[in-house]
Structures are given as C-alpha cells and as structure tokens.
C-alpha cells in the first residue's frame, strides 16, 4: 500500500482546527452577536477602518483558508460516514474544491479592499 497524500489537506485541517478553536468563540460572539446587538458600540467609520486594516484582512484570509479547509475535511468524512461511501471521490473534490474557491474569494476580498 502506498503512502497517502492526505497530509496536504490534513495539515490545513489541523491548522484550521487549532486556529478556529482558539479564536472563533470570541470572534463569533463579538462580531456576529454583540456587534449587531450594539453591546459592543462601534462607530461605522472606525469599524470600516478596523476591518479594512491590512492585519485584519490578513487575519480574515487566514481564517477563511484554514477554516474552510478544516470544515471541508470534516464534512467530507461525515458525508462518507453517513453512508455515501460510493460517492467518496466526488465528495472529496466537491469539499476541497469548494474550500479552494472560498479561499480564493477571500483572497480577492482581502486584496481588493
């Protein structure tokens, strides 16, 4: 049996898992809940400056890249384990293809700000 090339995606999965485990709780709480609710008060202009800061855009891209590959990897195995074993190959292409497209979109958003 030959060695698998799985490490290519697994390292992205693991990196994504670690990053999102660490940052996503506060990220989701602050940006998707507290900010819209106004618990964290933010001036729109300043917020645009914050979100548009190169460091935040870099962070957004890294989060998207690693997060999407992390998610894609898990989704791939979950779908297969739920009984779609026969479709393993298309599922794999779909999941990582999606993650790649998503990452490219994120890159474009980050660069074209």
């Amino acid at each position: 049996m030959a060695r698998s090339n799985e490490p290519a995606v697994w390292s992205l999965f693991a990196g994504g898992g670690a990053l999102t485990a660490l940052i996503l709780p506060v990220h989701a709480l602050a940006l998707t809940i507290l900010l819209p609710l106004g618990v964290i008060e933010a001036d729109s202009e300043k917020l645009v400056a914050f979100l548009g800061h190169p460091l935040f855009r870099l962070y957004m891209f890294v989060l998207a890249l690693l997060g999407l590959f992390h998610g894609a990897h898990r989704l791939r195995f979950t779908l297969i384990d739920l009984g779609l074993h026969a479709l393993a190959t298309p599922i794999t292409w779909l999941c990582y293809g999606g993650a790649t497209i998503g990452s490219l979109v994120a890159l474009w958003v980050a660069v074209s700000f």
């Binding site: 999102t20 989701a28 997060g67 195995f77 979109v105 994120a106 958003v109 980050a110």
Partner: peptide, 26 residues
Amino acid sequence: ELSAVFVIYFALWTVCLVQRAGQGAE
C-alpha cells in the same frame, strides 16, 4: 463533526463582513 458547518459559515460570514466594509460605512 457538524460543528464544521458553522466553522465554514463563520469564515464565510467574515469574508462577507469585510466585503461589506469595503463597500463603505453605510
């Protein structure tokens, strides 16, 4: 494993957020 769906979601949501910010404060 299903948490992955939300990891994907929040990542994409953040991309949207930055994209909107790129369109201006309004």
